[in-house]
Simulated assay, not measured.
Amino acid sequence: MRGTTVSPGATPCRAPQEGVLPVHRLEVPMPNAMPFAIGTFDTIGPMSRADFPHRHTFYEIVHVTAGTGAHVVDLARWELRPPHLGVIAPGQVHHWEGAAGREGSVVLFTEDFLLDHPGDRELLRRLGEQPWRDLDEATHDRTARLVADLDDEYRTGADGFATVLRALLHILVVRAARLPEPAAARPLTRPGAVAEEFVALIARNDPGLWSVHACAERIGVSGGYLTEAVKAATGSTPGRLVREAKVHEAKRLLARTRLTVRQVAGRVGFTDPAYFCRFFKRETGVSPGDFRRGRDVGGGNHHDHRLPSIVRPQPPA
């Protein structure tokens, strides 16, 4: 994930434009451009509290100690009943909804920062699939101490602090992976190396990789070998997983943007909108339009993320 760290003064993620999901890139202090940052919701900045759907090019771990409202990750809404530990992976769409009194710590880092413990990528991918964990009192206290050590090491910057930060982060990730999954979580099958790489590729939401042939070519194996490896590891075929990835991304765009169905179709690799509509209905049981109407409960303002101060006043009746 090269190039995801930008220096102060570079253009950060802005409030959303019509039909666009903003992408937030990690900003760290110079001259020490280490792809890692930690702080509170206030010290990290407004993007840690963003109330509009957006994506990251980095990982975010949040330790929420107080607050009300909800945290929305992709299509799931998690009520705030602190303490919680949350993990958002690169490419996931998330935002805070009606949050008030929110307190806690935010840890940000890119894949580059995992060089001492590359196996943490798989743990983080699994955590991102079930991103919201409740903490009991003992686990909360232990997590708070570990996060405090990370924060102190980061702010002090003593000799060898980067190595210590990587070690502490590794402990945090491993302990997070040990936590019980949410009640609605499904058991996950640990994939083999080829299947793991395939899953990581389609999770990038890159239409150029949304075909079995393209993924097999990128990994360096034959299509037949990829099919055998993925089916052995996951019980599903690569084609099935690619279709699920397309549907998941289409749902994200339909639920969180105002892109037209034609535009959504193009974003997920379909040149023919009619074919996309047939595909979506076959996979989900509803049309793209019906899915969007079902998500837009309570009127038409759910997708209007314009700031009130820049909305043109309506003429008096």
Results as ranks from 00 to 15, higher is better:
residue 183 A to I: 03
residue 77 R to N: 11
residue 112 D to W: 00
residue 306 R to A: 09
residue 67 G to E: 09
residue 183 A to S: 12
residue 206 D to A: 04
residue 20 V to W: 10
residue 73 V to W: 03
residue 98 G to M: 10
residue 230 V to K: 01
residue 212 V to D: 12
residue 244 E to F: 02
residue 182 P to G: 09
residue 289 G to C: 04
residue 296 D to Y: 03
residue 138 A to D: 14
residue 37 A to I: 06
residue 200 A to L: 03
residue 130 Q to T: 14
residue 42 D to C: 09
residue 162 A to W: 05
residue 221 V to P: 05
residue 18 E to Y: 07
residue 53 P to E: 08
residue 87 V to D: 01
residue 62 V to E: 05
residue 287 S to Y: 04
residue 118 P to H: 05
residue 278 R to E: 15
residue 202 I to D: 00
residue 84 H to C: 12
residue 136 D to V: 04
residue 120 D to W: 09
residue 110 T to L: 00
residue 49 R to C: 12
residue 189 T to H: 15
residue 118 P to M: 14
residue 307 L to R: 15
residue 64 V to D: 02
residue 4 T to M: 15
residue 212 V to P: 01
residue 79 E to S: 13
residue 308 P to F: 12
residue 18 E to S: 06
residue 210 W to L: 15
residue 217 E to G: 10
residue 267 R to A: 09
residue 136 D to Y: 05
residue 292 R to H: 04
residue 204 R to A: 01
residue 99 A to H: 04
residue 289 G to E: 13
residue 247 V to W: 05
residue 96 W to L: 13
residue 139 T to H: 14
residue 1 M to D: 11
residue 117 H to V: 01
residue 15 A to V: 05
residue 226 L to Q: 01
residue 152 D to S: 13
residue 146 L to Y: 12
residue 159 D to N: 09
residue 2 R to M: 10
residue 219 I to V: 05
residue 79 E to I: 07
residue 200 A to R: 03
residue 165 L to C: 06
residue 116 D to C: 07
residue 96 W to C: 05
residue 150 L to G: 04
residue 45 G to N: 02
